[in-house]
Write a protein that binds this DNA or RNA. Structure first.
Ligand code: FES
Ligand code: FES
Lengths: 144, 144
DNA sequence: TCTATAAAAGATATTTTTGTCTTTTATTTC
DNA sequence: GAAATAAAAGACAAAAATATCTTTTATAGA
């Protein structure tokens, strides 16, 4: 469904939301541990998300990653788009160069329904909401 | 959603269903052209599907690929499972090692709904049915 | 039985994704 | 201002996915 990169990105965003909700910042090493991802790899991903303004960061001592109030309202759709592009939102399920109602592939009618559900789900789900459930220990970001 | 390999596999299966419905067989070169895929690559994929009994083939002159009556009833789920494994049917949307109700990731509740829809869709959709729509030119296997 | 044909099998190559390491830059604290 | 810290940037490496080519095997038909 999502690339590994995207899975890590979403997990990291929720983790950062949690660890920075009191205004503090969280380092890359702890993030990697918290979400069970390769340290250098998630660093690269967050760097890119930082450039796009999806996550905030500060260098130097006491520095690290955090989310400002507007970033907490980021939808998963925004993250997915930033990392994986928009193939999942508009691409053909059978890999035709273009998805189109006028020139549909054999799966088009069934696939667009699902694609719509996925899009709705990703649009309505915000990082901040997922972080709250995580806080209540109703959900988890890693599995040992 | 699906790997390139899987997209080609599904398209090829529908194409073979169409071209072999009169009992004839279809060669790899025509298949590659018909579904706009790399020739040697789809050959490898069909070889593997052949080993698994998902598609039928014959060597030699007048040889080629075809689908017997039972293969026409193959569901997309069978093809996807044969090619991509069962990650899409049971894997965690955020890439945790295990998807579980007891230890759910933040996306679990929303994701399992969609995963179920996908599973149902792939199970109920049969190659033969898609081929019929293709015959009526209601759908297409390539886009130029 | 010989020849031509077409898939199977095996080997190799390229590209993309995923993962790692090193150097540079910004920031804090002393 | 100097030292320590942590992310940014850039270079590199490994693995997986995608793609291509060559040789072998089975089959049909002359
Ligand atoms: S054309 Fe394939 S999903 Fe729309
Ligand atoms: S645990 Fe992630 S989808 Fe079930």
């Amino acid at each position: 469904m999502f690339s590994k990169t995207c899975e890590y990105a979403i997990r990291a965003m929720i983790f950062i939301a949690q660890k920075s909700k009191d205004g503090s910042k969280i380092g890359i090493r702890e993030i990697a541990k918290g979400i069970d991802s390769p340290e250098y790899f998630i660093a690269k991903i967050l760097q890119e998300l930082g450039r796009k303004g999806v996550v905030q960061s500060m260098k130097g001592p006491t520095g690290g990653f955090y989310l400002d109030n507007s970033a907490r309202k980021t939808s998963l759709a925004t993250i997915v788009k930033a990392v994986d592009g928009d193939n999942i939102f508009s691409g053909c399920g059978l890999g035709l160069k273009q998805c189109s109602d006028k020139h549909p592939c054999p799966l088009h009618h069934e696939f667009t329904k699902i694609r719509k559900d996925i899009t709705n789900m990703l649009n309505k789900t915000k990082v901040g909401d997922l972080q709250e459930e995580l806080d209540q220990k109703l959900t988890f970001l890693r599995r040992d």
